[in-house]
Design a binder for these strands. Structure first.
Ligand SMILES: [Zn+2]
Length: 674
DNA sequence: GCAAGGTC
């Protein structure tokens, strides 16, 4: 910025103004542009602000970059409840970029005659704006501007109907910060302390969101390791009709008993031939999926490209800052009509890859995209802005393409699929073969990632078939999948803990702390992760439950409605945590020994490195032994074989959990008894 | 140093 322009900005500021505080530079730019056609853009140390005149009054639209202040304590040890709001750049490593925002906002806030909090209209936005006005301002009157998208007409109407600051929402927001801080800092310190007593010096952490997530990963791992169920037997038959190969399944498959399956198989092989007795056709329509919210984008990018959730988030944030896509940290699956779809689509139509699709949408004349059910108080679903991407790295372009295609798909027709179920009679047995064909591609022309393959079978009623082969395989229904980063993220979403902006980050924290690692089947806990989880479960059971978040939300909601006071809620949390921690400290030796047992067990499990708890087994192998004892008779009946043979089968089966195989081997080798 | 929550 030239010195001349800078002087012009300073001169305008000298004449007095009302300060509008926005949450991010993009929002500030949008607000100033919506309110006036003559905007003076100013910049100090790289931080932009905008000056406009409206009906004889001067306004300065300024911006922060999220939270400028956070809770901080100087005190060591626990319990600790002495905290204060401080500028983040002073207190946090890695927050130095906020110093320039702090300086510009300090200067602008001092000279303002009034304030308008125009941060996102949600609980955090209320705190962000309030803190800036309260900590940096001069005490002048303040107002709230409420909008749920950056559409100019909405911003204009929000500006013309300002409300009071919304103190209840601010109080609820501050309370959220305090409760998370009190729980998180105190329990983290307790954990670190106990671990130090147990002879290991490390910084550990626990929190309302991360701890239930860790527990979920551990629980799933244990389920996976100890999985066994009653086997069933599928009977698959390969047939031929001239050129065509047809895969069919016995209509009673899977069978409970292998002998029964064997008899049927022999009947079919003996019969040698089959005949199509009937063909049932069914049509189904598949509606286009709605435009992405962040977690669906993370899910699909993981499924289709193998991107981790935090990688996807980083790429999406870069695309957003390049103005190629809209705000990505949204929960919304809705595309409101205030977005200029026609303009975006015609811009997309100038891009080679999207031309024919975008043109065909525009030709229909009705631009009413599918709407999803999920909502967001401050942002719509993710959509391309229409700006042409150039010079993007490969992965960034892949993600952009996914977003653009998903956006266009929302405007397109349903896809139509025909399924045919062929009934086959062979050797006196009834078989079924499934065919699937796509009658109309519809939206899948734009978003071809979720329709599946066609499976055509060119036969009709009365066609004769030859039996080529038949195969029995045992299956174990209900095998759990180990978590991946993205399935953990989905779990957090369904449990409604964390936010779009933080979930991927929090999962990465669990890895950074050394609680979780990636094994070949997915996410698994380390020894430390297991120790922390068991400690929390056994010694502080209330903290690992998502129930805590539910109670949190209820109390915060009551504060928002003015039915409860922040001080009372914080005081209660403080009393509760004091009691819990005092109780813990009184059992110092017990806690230390518990942690020691998990970190450096004196007596190890017969089969692994974990501590032996009962009968020489760790909790996982103990549970596996019980599972095996439960299942063994059903296996004997299903295979119609004696115990030794069945145990040998289980010890080799890759369908049961590893801990089940371990204990089966142990029983065979007479290291343990069943 | 530890939380969870914003955004660069
Ligand atoms: Zn074990």
């Amino acid at each position: 910025m030239s010195n001349k322009a800078k002087r012009a900005c300073d001169r305008l500021l000298g004449k007095g103004y009302i300060l509008i505080v926005s949450e991010k530079p993009k929002a500030g730019a949008a607000i100033s542009k919506a309110l006036s056609s003559e905007v003076t853009e100013c910049r100090e140390s790289g931080v932009p602000y905008w000056i406009i005149e409206l009906r004889g009054k001067r306004y300065v639209v300024a911006s922060t970059a999220g939270h400028l202040f956070s809770l901080f304590t100087r005190k060591r040890g626990f319990p600790v409840f002495e905290y204060e709001w401080v500028p983040r750049w002073e207190a946090e490593r890695g927050a130095s970029h906020l110093k320039k925002f702090y300086r510009v906002l300090s200067k602008l806030a001092k000279g303002a005659s009034q304030y308008i909090n125009a941060c996102d209209y949600d609980i955090e936005g209320s705190v962000i704006g309030y803190m800036i006005i309260n900590m940096l301002g001069n005490g002048s009157k303040s107002y709230r501007m409420k909008y749920s998208s950056l559409a100019p007409e909405e911003l204009r109407s929000a500006f013309s109907s300002l409300s009071d600051m919304g103190w209840e929402m601010i109080e609820a927001g501050i309370c959220r910060h305090e409760l998370d801080w009190i729980w998180g800092i105190n329990v983290s310190r307790l954990l670190s302390w106990v671990t130090r007593l147990a002879g290991e010096k490390r910084i550990l952490s626990s929190g309302r969101v991360q701890s239930p997530t860790l527990t979920e990963a551990v629980d799933r791992y244990i389920d996976y390791m100890t999985f066994i169920s009653t086997p069933k037997f599928s009977l698959k038959v390969e047939l031929r009709a001239d050129e065509d190969k047809i895969s069919a399944t016995h209509e009673e498959s899977p069978f409970d008993n292998r002998e029964v399956a064997k008899r049927k198989k022999e009947n079919i092989l003996k019969g040698k031939k089959g005949i199509i007795t009937s063909a049932e056709r069914s049509l189904s329509s598949i509606r286009p999926p709605p435009a992405f919210n962040l977690s669906e984008l993370q899910y699909e990018a993981s499924r289709i490209f193998g991107f981790s959730p935090s990688y996807t988030q980083r790429l999406a944030e870069e695309l957003y800052l390049d103005a190629l896509i809209s705000y990505p940290r949204t929960n919304s699956e809705k595309l409101p009509s205030t977005i200029h779809h026609e303009k975006i689509l015609s811009e997309l139509s100038s891009m080679e890859n999207y031309r024919s699709i975008a043109i065909s949408i525009l030709k229909t004349g009705k631009l009413s995209p599918v709407q999803g059910t999920k909502e967001d108080p401050a942002h719509p679903a993710i959509y391309p802005t229409g700006k042409r991407p150039s010079g993007l790295k490969r992965d960034s372009y892949k993600l952009y393409d996914l977003i653009a295609r998903r956006y266009m798909a929302a405007f397109m027709d349903e896809a139509k699929i025909e399924r045919v179920e062929f009934h086959i009679r062979a050797g006196g047995e009834n078989l079924i073969a499934q065919a699937k064909s796509i009658l109309k591609r519809g939206w899948t022309l734009s978003y071809p990632f979720s329709i599946g393959r066609e499976k055509r079978i060119n036969v009709k009623e009365g066609s004769e078939l030859k039996v080529s082969s038949a195969r029995i395989s045992s299956v174990l229904p209900g095998k759990p999948k180990m978590h991946t980063k993205v399935s953990l993220l989905k779990w957090m979403e369904t449990e409604n803990i964390g936010t779009e902006a933080t979930r991927a980050q929090i999962i990465d924290t669990l890895f950074k702390r050394g609680y979780l690692i990636y094994g070949k089947d997915g996410v698994k806990p380390t020894k430390l992760g297991m120790a922390v989880t068991m400690f929390l479960k056994e010694k502080l059971p209330d903290i690992t439950k998502t129930e805590l978040t539910r109670q949190f939300e209820e109390r915060l909601f009551r504060i928002r409605k003015g039915e409860e006071k922040r001080e009372d809620v914080v005081w209660e949390a403080r009393r509760f945590i004091t009691e819990e921690l005092e109780r813990a400290v009184n059992m110092e030796a017990e806690l230390r020994d518990f942690m020691k047992m998990y970190l450096r067990p004196e007596v190890k499990c017969e089969f692994c490195e974990m501590p032996a708890l009962e009968g020489g087994l760790c909790l996982i192998h103990h549970r596996a032994l019980i599972g095996l004892a439960d299942a063994i008779e059903k296996w004997e009946a299903a295979f119609n074989e004696d115990r030794d043979k069945v145990l040998a089968k289980i010890a080799k089966s890759t369908s049961v959990g590893k801990a089940i195989r371990d204990v089966a081997k142990g029983v065979i080798e007479k290291r343990i008894i069943l």
